[in-house]
Design a protein around this nucleic acid. Sequence first.
DNA 1: GTCTATACCAAGATAGAC
DNA 2: GTCTATCTTGGTATAGAC
Lengths: 195, 195
Amino acid sequence: MARTQGSHSDITGPKIREAALRLFAQHGYAAVSMRQIAKEVGVQAGALYNYTPDKQSLLFNLMQGHMAELQAAWDAVPRADGAVERLRAFTGFHIRFHLERPDAVFIAYMELRNLTDENFIVLESLRRDYENGVEAILKEGVEQRVFRIPDTKIATLAVIAMLNGVNTWYRSEGRLTLDEVENVYWDMVQKAVSA
Amino acid sequence: MARTQGSHSDITGPKIREAALRLFAQHGYAAVSMRQIAKEVGVQAGALYNYTPDKQSLLFNLMQGHMAELQAAWDAVPRADGAVERLRAFTGFHIRFHLERPDAVFIAYMELRNLTDENFIVLESLRRDYENGVEAILKEGVEQRVFRIPDTKIATLAVIAMLNGVNTWYRSEGRLTLDEVENVYWDMVQKAVSA
DNA sequence: GTCTATACCAAGATAGAC
DNA sequence: GTCTATCTTGGTATAGAC
């Protein structure tokens, strides 16, 4: 018979984060109760408070962790030669990273409004850092005369918005492989910013 | 002294829709209570139920109304000559229509998960109709050899995702006029699908 | 058509036993 | 670290008076 009591701090913590991530993505932060999360994990609601001071912190930590991972992963991608190749690398990276974490991505974009003002500022700053990295590539390409872009800030947001769209329709069982998806988007991104 | 009781059916109905639209967009459907909506309108919570059978119907009607308006407005745009001009017309239409109704747009994309299964199917169908209209333009352009698009379905979603992005950053007091925004996006859209 | 009052239920969070 | 039990608040929705 399974134990229903005892210490499980090393596994319960991650399980709570996983359950919260999935449930928040599926139903929305406000629509998910602490009791629901606890049920998924297999503990009572009160036990959650050994791992998070409150529901808001749970959300914030998930979002902050996602953005930190995103930035760290992009920073770890080897710097390619020239703006065109760097943009191509970014396109592939961004698509793959996002497709691997649909829940975290969805939450990071959708639950900003449910953050406290304090937490919101932190997330906005992380998002801006990431965007600035992309804009730097576009600016570089404009200087090198390989891109022609009326407004690099808007183009940055447009490229990211376009790439994020892949999460709304891609299914791994679908007709296209990841490589094909990447190529289709790269074709569009590249032409969109081309000189 | 202001009346606190009496009949106001002709103004209360629209006021409820406006308040719900704004509050849902700002905080999310699940996070907004009927009491909050009532307070904005200036009535008691119970009075809302003279206008909607329940909270879910209120959301559904807002979303359905928005999509119906969107489709009707696009259908009313005069059909331009050739795929390129039609796509340009679409780009301008889509940007302007969406910027005029940021709250409704936000809800239409974000609150799908809070619809009942039945209502979700209806909305998805309306969304697909709209997308198909865009894809038809792209296909036409491919046939006429003015566009070169590896996958018209993906390109449709990519173009719409890119254009929707404008709602996340545009402010009417900002440095760009609507015409300039339109031109910047048209430059990117046109190049992205170009042959 | 709106009010007040309320039924009923579920939420977040805490206390104290084990 | 988890449990059970509970406090307090606020949710949707309804009933009946005006």
